[in-house]
Simulated assay, not measured.
Amino acid sequence: MTSNTLRFRPPAGAGHCPRPVPGAALRLFLFHHAGGSHLVYRDWITHFPADWEIHLLDAPGRGRLTDVPACADAERLVDFFHDEIVLAMDRPFAFFGHSMGGLAAYELTNRLAAEGLPLPAWLGLSARGAPRQPLPTDNRHRMPDAELRRHLARMGGTPPEVLEDPDIWQLFAPMIRNDLRLVETWSPRPHTPPLSVPLSVFGGADDVVVSPERLAAWEQYAQRFLGLHLFDGDHFYFRSRPAEMVRLITEQVRTATAGRPATGAAR
């Protein structure tokens, strides 16, 4: 890979960088949940170290990408993110993904490894269970509207007006169902090697979607597991604790990168 290939330019599609940092020590990419957008992280930015550059990613079909067709499966979603993130490898970078975003971050890390490209210095997965084959009970994307709205209410995170207003629901329902189908039909590739990058896992003790046991099971999928960080709360346990989450993420990244060279990305 030539130096010209690695010269970073701001992503034109998925990425939103609210605070560009020339000469940043680290670029952190944040991946959002099913049915969501980068706005879930809007309160996090000011809490990160001043020399970190934070990139908020959006999947197609939402926000300023409303006119871009939604990705039907995880492989296409990884394709979408991949072509932009490979331009950001001129300095250390890290991934954090919540729920569907955790799946995207995990699969993107595997894709980079398979291609022999630089890897993130750290991977953080939130409210995303360890890999397993789809089960017959993975059917939220097929639930009738009323049942799905009740389920989303139990999960937390979805604004009440989306669930209670029929017109707003009809606007958002196709995107929500598409994202849930993407997550629930994903299958791990056979013989995928354990992650070689440091991995930290986060979740809510009262999550109705992902149990603490499934979160803890990530340990067997990583060569360097930095631990499970469990909080009181539901699937969106972090909503009320942005500063605490950012502080913990910062600590985990620094633990992961301790002793690494100051430049370049993890391999």
Score class of each variant (00 low, 15 high):
Ser3Arg: 12
Ser3Asp: 14
Asn4Ala: 14
Leu6Asn: 10
Arg7Phe: 10
Arg9Tyr: 13
Pro22Cys: 06
Ala24Thr: 02
Leu28Met: 12
Phe29Tyr: 08
Leu30Thr: 03
Gly36Tyr: 00
Ser37Arg: 04
Ser37Leu: 07
Thr46Ser: 15
His47Thr: 04
Pro49Arg: 11
His55Ala: 00
Pro60Phe: 08
Arg62Lys: 12
Ala70Arg: 15
Cys71Tyr: 01
Ala72Asn: 12
Leu77His: 07
Asp83Ser: 11
Glu84Tyr: 06
Val86Phe: 09
Leu87Cys: 13
Arg91Tyr: 09
Phe93Tyr: 15
Gly102Pro: 09
Gly102Val: 04
Ala105Tyr: 06
Arg111Gly: 09
Ala114His: 11
Gly116Gln: 13
Leu123Ala: 09
Ser126Lys: 05
Ser126Tyr: 08
Ala127Asp: 04
Gly129Asp: 07
Pro134Trp: 12
Pro136Tyr: 09
Pro144Cys: 03
Leu152Phe: 03
Leu152Val: 05
Leu152Ser: 00
Glu161Leu: 10
Val162Arg: 00
Glu164Ala: 14
Asp165Ala: 08
Pro166Lys: 01
Ala173Cys: 11
Met175Gln: 13
Met175Leu: 14
Ile176Asp: 02
Arg181Lys: 13
Leu182Phe: 06
Ser187His: 04
Pro193Met: 12
Leu195Met: 10
Val197Gly: 02
Val201Leu: 09
Val201Thr: 05
Gly204Arg: 06
Pro212Tyr: 05
Arg214Gln: 15
Leu215Arg: 07
Trp218Met: 06
Gln220His: 14
Gln223Ser: 13
Gln223His: 14
Leu228Arg: 08
His229Trp: 03
Phe236Arg: 03
Tyr237Asp: 00
Ser240Val: 04
Met245Ala: 05
Val246Ala: 08
Arg247Gly: 07
Glu251Lys: 13
Glu251Met: 09
Thr255Glu: 14
Gly264Gln: 11
